[in-house]
Protein backbone atom coordinates (compact mmCIF):
# COMPACT_ATOMS: atom_id res chain seq x y z
CA UNK A 1 0.00 0.00 0.00
CA UNK A 2 2.83 2.38 0.79
CA UNK A 3 4.59 1.94 -2.53
CA UNK A 4 2.61 3.78 -5.15
CA UNK A 5 2.44 1.83 -8.36
CA UNK A 6 0.70 1.92 -11.69
CA UNK A 7 -2.48 0.37 -10.29
CA UNK A 8 -3.08 3.27 -7.91
CA UNK A 9 -3.12 5.76 -10.74
CA UNK A 10 -5.27 3.48 -12.90
CA UNK A 11 -7.87 3.29 -10.12
CA UNK A 12 -7.99 7.08 -9.94
CA UNK A 13 -8.40 7.14 -13.72
CA UNK A 14 -11.20 4.60 -13.52
CA UNK A 15 -12.99 6.66 -10.88
CA UNK A 16 -12.77 9.74 -13.06
CA UNK A 17 -14.05 7.76 -16.05
CA UNK A 18 -17.06 6.43 -14.15
CA UNK A 19 -17.92 9.85 -12.76
CA UNK A 20 -17.61 11.36 -16.22
CA UNK A 21 -19.93 8.79 -17.77
CA UNK A 22 -22.42 9.28 -14.96
CA UNK A 23 -22.39 13.04 -15.50
CA UNK A 24 -22.73 12.64 -19.27
CA UNK A 25 -25.71 10.33 -18.95
CA UNK A 26 -27.64 12.11 -16.22
CA UNK A 27 -27.22 15.84 -16.78
CA UNK A 28 -29.70 17.57 -19.04
CA UNK A 29 -27.76 20.80 -19.34
CA UNK A 30 -25.57 20.86 -22.45
CA UNK A 31 -22.68 22.45 -20.56
CA UNK A 32 -23.07 19.85 -17.80
CA UNK A 33 -22.58 17.15 -20.42
CA UNK A 34 -19.49 18.99 -21.61
CA UNK A 35 -18.14 18.87 -18.05
CA UNK A 36 -18.66 15.10 -18.08
CA UNK A 37 -16.67 14.86 -21.30
CA UNK A 38 -13.84 16.79 -19.67
CA UNK A 39 -13.79 14.28 -16.79
CA UNK A 40 -13.53 11.36 -19.21
CA UNK A 41 -10.74 13.05 -21.15
CA UNK A 42 -8.87 13.64 -17.91
CA UNK A 43 -9.13 10.01 -16.90
CA UNK A 44 -7.55 9.03 -20.20
CA UNK A 45 -4.84 11.63 -19.73
CA UNK A 46 -3.97 10.38 -16.24
CA UNK A 47 -3.67 6.86 -17.61
CA UNK A 48 -1.39 8.01 -20.42
CA UNK A 49 1.01 9.75 -18.05
CA UNK A 50 0.94 6.86 -15.58
CA UNK A 51 1.74 4.30 -18.28
CA UNK A 52 4.48 6.59 -19.55
CA UNK A 53 5.96 6.81 -16.08
CA UNK A 54 5.77 3.17 -15.07
CA UNK A 55 6.03 1.15 -18.29
CA UNK A 56 7.62 3.15 -21.11
CA UNK A 57 10.04 5.61 -19.51
CA UNK A 58 12.48 5.80 -22.40
CA UNK A 59 10.29 7.71 -24.85
CA UNK A 60 7.84 10.44 -24.00
CA UNK A 61 4.88 8.95 -25.88
CA UNK A 62 2.49 9.07 -22.95
CA UNK A 63 3.24 12.64 -21.98
CA UNK A 64 2.93 13.86 -25.55
CA UNK A 65 -0.35 12.01 -25.97
CA UNK A 66 -1.56 13.83 -22.86
CA UNK A 67 -0.49 17.14 -24.34
CA UNK A 68 -2.55 16.40 -27.43
CA UNK A 69 -5.49 15.38 -25.24
CA UNK A 70 -5.30 18.75 -23.49
CA UNK A 71 -5.11 20.65 -26.77
CA UNK A 72 -8.04 18.72 -28.25
CA UNK A 73 -10.06 19.24 -25.07
CA UNK A 74 -9.52 22.98 -25.37
CA UNK A 75 -10.60 22.93 -29.02
CA UNK A 76 -13.62 20.77 -28.25
CA UNK A 77 -14.69 23.03 -25.37
CA UNK A 78 -14.46 26.13 -27.56
CA UNK A 79 -16.65 24.61 -30.28
CA UNK A 80 -19.08 23.08 -27.81
CA UNK A 81 -19.56 26.31 -25.88
CA UNK A 82 -20.17 28.11 -29.17
CA UNK A 83 -22.79 25.49 -30.06
CA UNK A 84 -24.39 25.87 -26.64
CA UNK A 85 -24.60 29.63 -27.06
CA UNK A 86 -26.20 29.09 -30.46
CA UNK A 87 -28.63 26.56 -28.98
CA UNK A 88 -29.54 29.07 -26.30
CA UNK A 89 -30.17 31.73 -28.94
CA UNK A 90 -32.54 29.43 -30.81
CA UNK A 91 -34.35 27.68 -27.95
CA UNK A 92 -33.69 30.09 -25.02
CA UNK A 93 -32.58 27.03 -23.08
CA UNK A 94 -29.67 24.63 -23.06
CA UNK A 95 -31.76 21.59 -22.10
CA UNK A 96 -30.63 18.90 -24.52
CA UNK A 97 -34.05 17.21 -24.46
CA UNK A 98 -35.60 20.27 -26.04
CA UNK A 99 -33.22 20.19 -28.98
CA UNK A 100 -35.35 17.63 -30.83
CA UNK A 101 -36.64 19.67 -33.71
CA UNK A 102 -34.93 17.48 -36.31
CA UNK A 103 -36.84 14.40 -35.09
CA UNK A 104 -39.94 15.73 -36.83
Amino acid sequence: MLTIGLTHYLVVGAALLSCGIYVMSTKRNAIGILIGVELVLNSAAVNFVAFDRFLVQTTLDGQIATLFVIVLAAAEAAIAVAICVNLYKNLTSVDVDQASRLQG
Partner: peptide
Protein backbone atom coordinates in the same frame (compact mmCIF):
# COMPACT_ATOMS: atom_id res chain seq x y z
CA UNK B 1 2.33 18.25 -18.61
CA UNK B 2 1.26 19.37 -15.12
CA UNK B 3 2.03 23.01 -15.84
CA UNK B 4 0.25 22.79 -19.20
CA UNK B 5 -2.74 21.20 -17.47
CA UNK B 6 -2.87 24.22 -15.14
CA UNK B 7 -2.45 26.86 -17.80
CA UNK B 8 -4.60 25.41 -20.61
CA UNK B 9 -7.14 23.24 -18.86
CA UNK B 10 -7.76 25.10 -15.63
CA UNK B 11 -6.90 28.60 -16.81
CA UNK B 12 -8.41 28.33 -20.28
CA UNK B 13 -10.93 25.57 -20.82
CA UNK B 14 -12.56 25.89 -17.43
CA UNK B 15 -12.91 29.66 -17.73
CA UNK B 16 -14.47 29.08 -21.13
CA UNK B 17 -16.95 26.64 -19.57
CA UNK B 18 -17.92 29.07 -16.82
CA UNK B 19 -18.30 31.74 -19.47
CA UNK B 20 -20.62 29.41 -21.37
CA UNK B 21 -22.65 28.81 -18.21
CA UNK B 22 -23.07 32.53 -17.67
CA UNK B 23 -24.09 33.16 -21.27
CA UNK B 24 -26.68 30.40 -21.34
CA UNK B 25 -28.56 30.50 -18.07
CA UNK B 26 -31.64 32.50 -17.34
Amino acid sequence: VGAIQFIVYVGGTLVLLIFGVMLTSK
